[in-house]
């Protein structure tokens, strides 16, 4: 059995309110799966259910093939062999960083000396060896979470649960720590289940992404699938910037199509799930799927310089379009510009 985690028909309820409505989710050994969803979508509840802090009200959870939770019986958290990094760090105010990281090692039977030596190694690994005698109140958020990660690694679990580990950190710190956590997780060989509401984080670290909406998994797939072929408009907007154009499709062959814009035919690559119908359609366009040049007309209505690239909002005859171009701005507000459509995703 190469599945690290298997949730089938998982339901979780707080009293009479059900927050997860039958979730099917698997995580393979060593795989990194990210749960993406807005707050209140059930990400944390799913994690806490797997951890053993919330009993399922329906369905079951298996870890490496072993049944650990059904509505009737649940294995206590400490016997599931799962580690967790908490959103608010959950560091113990009365313990130093070293004792905090040594804690799981002590619980799994190491003697004090060995546990502390290993803990010191792990703190070093996370780049916080110098802080080993500090208590949480003397540490910044980023430092606290590094210790939280070291503690989770010390558990030497086959599955690592990460509950928005960087949600409370400043943006520049966030990307660096996320990369580091993902790196350590891969090295340890443990599978990971992350929860996040940050799409760039999700796309960057996931082998697969599961999109949660109001307690239901609405799409599971690779990051590229999610970005290029979102299941619906809601998922599309959650998984990155997107524009919706109203196009008239006159010809389709495989992934190529001819659409009519401004009365003229226009060739583009167009993917869709099942339908190959012609006629008017809503077509999703990511900012990098259109470019300046070409023979279509538009008016620049907004412009944001982002450093490596510039984002524009264009008013076109087929709808409002967001377009991204590398480099500094080349057009100003109110300019009439020319553009071309390279690809789209028909919803």
């Amino acid at each position: 059995m190469s599945l690290a985690l298997e949730c089938s028909g998982l339901r979780i309820a707080y009293g009479a309110t059900e927050v997860l409505h039958g979730v099917e989710l698997t995580v393979e050994a060593g795989e990194s799966v990210v749960l993406l969803g807005p707050s209140g979508s059930g990400k944390s509840s799913l994690l806490y259910g797997v951890a053993g802090f919330l009993p399922p009200s329906g369905g079951e959870i298996r870890l490496e093939g072993r049944m650990i939770a059904t509505p009737r019986s649940q294995e206590p958290p400490e016997r599931r062999g799962v580690a967790m990094v908490f959103q608010h760090y959950a560091l113990w105010p009365h313990l130093s960083a070293l004792d905090t990281v040594a804690y799981p090692l002590r619980r799994s039977g190491s003697d004090r000396g060995a546990a502390r030596r290993r803990a010191a190694d792990l703190l070093d690994l996370m780049g916080v060896a110098a802080l080993s005698e500090r208590r949480p109140s003397e540490l910044s958020g980023g430092e606290q979470q590094r210790i939280g990660v070291a503690r989770a690694l010390a558990r030497e679990a086959r599955l690592l649960l990460l509950d928005e580990p960087t949600a409370h950190l400043d943006a520049p710190l966030r990307a660096a720590l996320v990369a580091e956590i993902a790196d350590q997780q891969r090295r340890s060989g443990a599978a990971a289940l992350w929860a996040t509401h940050d799409v760039t984080e999700a796309l960057a670290v996931a082998d697969r992404v599961g999109v949660l909406r109001e307690g239901r998994l609405v799409q599971v797939g690779s990051p590229a699938e999610l970005y290029e072929r979102p299941a619906d408009l809601w998922t599309a907007r959650l998984s990155g910037p997107a524009s919706l154009l109203a196009l008239d499709i006159v010809e389709r062959k495989d992934s190529q199509a001819v659409v009519v814009i401004q009365g003229r035919p226009h060739a583009m690559s167009l993917a869709s799930d099942a339908t190959s119908a012609l006629g008017s359609a809503k077509v999703l366009v990511r900012p990098d799927w259109a470019e300046f040049g070409g023979d279509l007309n538009a008016l620049v209505t907004a412009r944001w310089y982002r450093g490596p690239h510039t984002d524009y909002r264009l008013a076109t005859p087929v709808g409002e379009l967001e377009l991204r171009q590398l480099g500094p701005p080349t057009a100003s507000l109110g300019d009439a510009v020319r553009w071309r459509l390279k690809r789209g995703w028909a919803l």
């Binding site: 806490y48 951890a51 053993g52 400490e78």
Partner: peptide, 24 residues
């Protein structure tokens, strides 16, 4: 979450009470 962190680290309920809840 502080007690949950102890449980996730392998402490059972009584151990979490003794090593985390009571000291705090």
């Amino acid at each position: 979450d502080l007690e949950r962190a102890a449980r996730m680290s392998g402490a059972d309920g009584a151990m979490a009470l003794r090593t985390v809840t009571l000291p705090l």
